[in-house]
Each structure stands twice: as C-alpha cells, then as structure tokens.
Design a protein around this nucleic acid. Structure first.
Lengths: 334, 334
DNA sequence: CTGAAAGCGCTAACAA
DNA sequence: TTGTTAGCGCTTTCAG
C-alpha cells in the first residue's frame, strides 16, 4: 500500500495524490475527497522513512536516559511528551543503563537523521564527551537535563543542586548530627559535584572540616552498591546521617537499616534527592529534596523546540536552573 | 556526509563503498580498509531511513505501554531490551497514558514500516480493537503482554491472574475479613476480568455471595480516582480489606488511609498486584502479588523475535502463562 | 574485484 | 488544477 497504488486505482498521478494527502491548495476539493476516501478505505498510512528521507526531517526527538525505573526520569519523560505532542513530534526513549558504551552507540546512531533533536541525561559512567561533540558537530540540537556535562558548552536544565545540598546539610547539622555522609552516584557527574560542593560548604560554614570518608561513591552495579552501602553503615564510626543522591540509594539505605536493625531516624537520619511520589508512605516517611521533574522535562523540551523551529537559532550554553523543594519528614527528624 | 561523498573522496564508486561498509566478500581487504578508515575519519554514519526504506526493515521494535511510572512496566521494558539488544534491534517506547485515542494513533503509525514488530500492553480505556486488527492485517507481528485483549486471537504473555486473585481472596477470608472489595482498573481489560473471576470464585467457594459493591472500577484519572477510592473507604459499610489491581491504586489507598486515620491492617487489610521493589519498606509493609515483570518482557520479546526471524513463521494465538508470587507482609496480617 | 543503474516511497520544482 | 520527473541515501542485481 503506497501512494502509487492509490494513484493507479484512481487513475491519477502520484503527485496529485501526494498533494491531496497533504491538503495542498493546488488540489481541488473534489479530488482531495476522492483520494482521502480511498486512502481510508485501503487502510493507507504513509511510509515514515520515505518521508523522512525526502524531507530530511523525522519529526522524532530522542530522550536518552540512564534508566526508566526511577520516578524522576519517568516524570521527566511525561513532561517532555507533553510538549512534543503539541508540536506533532514523536518521543523515542533510549536507555543507557548507566553505561557509557551504550550511550555512545545510541548517540552515534543519531548522527544521520534518525532524530531531529536530542534530550539527554548523562549516564553516571560517562567520562568521555567525544560522542557528544560528534553529535553537536553534525548540528543536531541537544539539550541536557539534570545530569548535565561539566565543562561542555551545552544547553542545560538543572535544579539548584548546590543550594539544596547545602540546606539539607544545614538541617542535619541543626539536628545535632555529627557524622554526616554524602552518598554520591559518581564523581563524574557535574550535578552531583555541585551537590557535594554544597555539602562541603555547609560543613565548613558550621566550622567543621571535610574528610574523604564523608563522601561515598555508590557503584551503580546493583549488588555491589548494596555492599558498599552496608560497609558504610557498619563502620566503627557509624554515620548518624546520610544524604542520598538518588531514589534508589535512599531505598537501599532503608533496606539495609531494616536488615541491620538500625532505626531511622534515631540511629540514622536520611534525606534524599528523590521524586518518589510515595516518600510519605515509607516507614518512616522519607525527607526529600524534590526536583520538579515534569517541569524540567517540559523546559528542556521547550528549549529544544526553539532550536528545532527556528532554523537560524543556535542553542548556546543556556543554563536554566529550576528550584527544588525540601520536604521534611520523619526520616530526618529527631 | 553520505556514501557518495566517501566514494568521491576515494575515487571509487558508491556501490563499492556500500559493499565495503557491509563487509561484502566481493571487496578486497585493501579497499575495505581504505573505506572504513575514511568513514571513521569523516565521522560517517549511515542514514537509517535510507536503509530502512531500501531494505523494508527498520530493526526497530515498538513497545506500547500505558505508562512508564509503574514498576511493572519499567521492569518489563528492561526485559524486552535485554533480548532486543542481543538481536541487534532498537527498542522504541511509546506511551498511551491509558488513552485509547493515543493508542490508536500510535498503532496507525506502525502500519507502514516504522517498526518491524510490536509489543504491547493495552490501555485501560481501550474498547475497540480495530486499530489492532488493522495492524495485524498489514502482517506486522504483534505480541501482547500482561494487559492482553480478551477475545482476539493474538500471541500473549500473562500471569496466572485468576489463581493469584483467588489465593489473595482466600487469604483475606482466612484472616476473617467480611467485606472485601476488589479494586479494578477497568472492566475492559481481560486480565483484570480474570482476576475478578478469581475473586468471585473464592467468595463463592467460601459460601459467600458476590455483590456489585464489592467491585470498584478505578478511573485512571488521577484526581477522580482518588475521590472514588475515598468514597469507598468512607462507606457506611466500610470494607475491611481491599485487593488492588495496580501499584498506583495500592499507594493511593495508603495515602487515603493516612488521611482518614485508618489503620492498615487493623482497619483495612491490603493486598496488591504490584511489582514495587520497595513494597517491604512501606508503612506497613505491603503484601504483594508480584508478577515476574522482567521475565514477562523477555518472554514476549522472544516470541516476537520468533516471528521476526522466521519469515514463514506466523504468530498464532500462543498464550504463555507465567506464575506470579504472593508475598505476605504486614498489610494483610492481623 | 569494481562499477552503472534501478528502485525503495515520497515530495516538490517545473511543465502542461 | 493536474502530471512528469528528479532525487533523498542506500543496496543490489547485473555487467564489466
């Protein structure tokens, strides 16, 4: 079923059919109707690849994410979709599973027209930026959100990571916590480093000195991560508070505390960067730094469409910072 | 950057370049090397659309889902990806947001080569199956998982919904519950109906009679759903147990109980069909019927690839049933 | 071993 | 208002 078949059946030319299908002003209402009717009858759908090839436009945007089993990312996807939809674009979700090599091969695949633009949150493993540069070299618009690259000039949408971590730390210090540990995802991610900076600043403002053991890099390997966290909670100088940089880290901490018989918040206070809708339902309710995930997705997508719609428009290093909200619950209260 | 440019720069023909790129036996090792080197140097990537158009094969499979912010679906995606990856296929995720019209327009778009095969879980709103039939008419392989259509002949991967619901109901009856309510997602979904049947059977086996008020259809509209559930929990004959058909329903029940000051499990016992990894961390820990989400995704994908790889092979109404596991926790214990 | 050319389905400039 | 045709980038006969 293609345009040629339609044309043949109607005894008219393919270009007339094409124009009719695209509602061109050149075609008479009568012809249009005939074409549309037959198309409907024959269950015709245009071949997307032929159109993309011809028009050098796919009407697809890619969303490249570490993982989808995370409230932040799944909400961000919805934000992105909400704007893509009204622009008539498809959203294609690609998962890196936190692997640099997957991220690279996905991005390589975008270099020749598969998608018109890319929204992306870096994998925690990513150190090289070659794949990103190569994509930019091809002139494909690219907007990062949340997990943005450190030094690169790239449009980015993030939250006030420094301030949020600072505030969380101040809170915990205020509750009398002596041994606060920051659970990082990776030392390669800019936003995490901003959070770590906020953490350090709060410590020094409180007249404390930062030590290396106060920062723990969580491996993203499921099993190993669990072991890492367990080791932290069984140190001889056991922490009395942690700040977790991801939903998964926080819930792992909960599991381990259950297992070790540690009481939250009595033995360990917990604050997490997390967008879990059910934070309040945990035992105990989890204090969270909530990022406006849906909004972040929306904003990043809006930025991307600016570039997509204005041919001349170049995404510079626009850097949008959206505020996060600290919600105090039982897990960080005395 | 295309094959023509490469050919021109090397002073050879496009067909030679094409063959070299595809490692054809017709091309000398020397020429291959020259081509590959230049391709790498010039940052060449083949245009996916041109290839798909020519070969009538996209190496893409679609996963059509109601929502991604749900543990079952996000785990299923990972299962699907695990097999697609080793087959050299891309996975494209499409979200219906539980809307029939979105599901229809997505499927329509698949009718002309955009993807080679489709994996799908129905939206709760879907009543018509025309869009599905039309897709099948085009000969595009289609496998359903979890939310499968009722009467249609279609390859499907599901869990033992009837038995699971039966067992859960028996459990609750055993704990002395008198007014058990089944919280359904929709009366249009086959699997949910199977669960309802299991529920009814357990009731009648216990010598009880089923009444309409024991079955509540949760609207998927966020706000309205909340109201519906609230109404149920404030009935004069308040239920003393619920079986929830989805993760979100269960967590909503928790929220509402908190709000109304109802105690789980004392005032209300709860069992949920849910694949939440953190069910044990809720307050109280949630009794769950856990579906093997990753396995389901894997199995459905494997089935799809059977059809994709054997040109002659036709997906009949294969119906794979995987067992779910009941994990009893505090929410359903006296 | 290499090249010329047709054609996948579609659009758009140009002709009629 | 409609038709003819070139060409998007690629693969693949078929000839050389």
């Amino acid at each position: 079923m293609n345009i040629k078949t339609l044309a043949a059946q109607l005894g008219i030319s393919v270009s007339t059919v094409s124009k009719a299908l695209n509602d061109s002003y050149e075609i008479s209402a009568e012809t249009k109707k005939k074409v549309l009717d037959l198309a409907a009858l024959l269950n015709y759908t245009p071949n997307a690849y032929a159109g993309s090839l011809r028009n050098k436009k796919s009407s697809n945007i890619a969303v490249v994410l570490p993982e989808v089993a995370d409230s932040f990312f799944s909400q961000a996807i919805n934000g992105i979709e909400s704007v893509a939809q009204e622009k008539g674009y498809h959203v294609i979700v690609y998962l890196t599973h936190e692997k640099q090599h997957k991220e690279q091969s996905i991005l390589n695949d975008f270099r020749n027209g598969r998608v018109d633009g890319v929204l992306m949150s870096l994998s925690s493993e990513t150190t090289s930026d070659e794949h990103i540069c190569r994509l930019k070299d091809k002139g494909i618009p690219l907007v990062f959100f949340d997990r943005v690259p450190e030094k690169m000039m790239a449009a980015s949408v993030v939250t006030d990571d420094f301030e949020a971590a600072y505030k969380a730390t101040v809170q915990l210090i205020g509750k009398g916590c002596e041994r606060i540990v920051f659970l990082s995802l990776s030392d390669k991610l800019a936003i995490i480093n901003h959070r770590v900076e906020g953490f350090k600043k709060a410590l020094s403002d409180a007249g404390r000195t930062y030590h290396e053991h106060m920062l723990v890099n969580c491996s993203l390997n499921e099993q190993q991560n669990y072991e890492t966290l367990k080791a932290v909670l069984t140190r001889t100088e056991r922490p009395d508070a942690v700040i977790a940089s991801a939903e998964k880290t926080a819930t792992d901490i909960y599991s381990i505390c259950n297992q070790l018989g540690l009481n939250i918040p009595a033995d360990l206070k917990v604050i997490a960067f997390a967008s879990l809708p059910i934070a309040a339902l945990l035992s105990p309710p989890l204090s969270t730094i909530v990022q406006p995930a849906f909004e972040i997705g929306k904003t990043a997508a809006a930025l991307l469409f600016k570039a997509l719609e204005k041919p001349g428009f170049k995404l510079k290093n626009e850097y949008v910072i959206l505020p996060s909200v600290f919600i105090e619950r039982k897990s960080s209260c005395p």
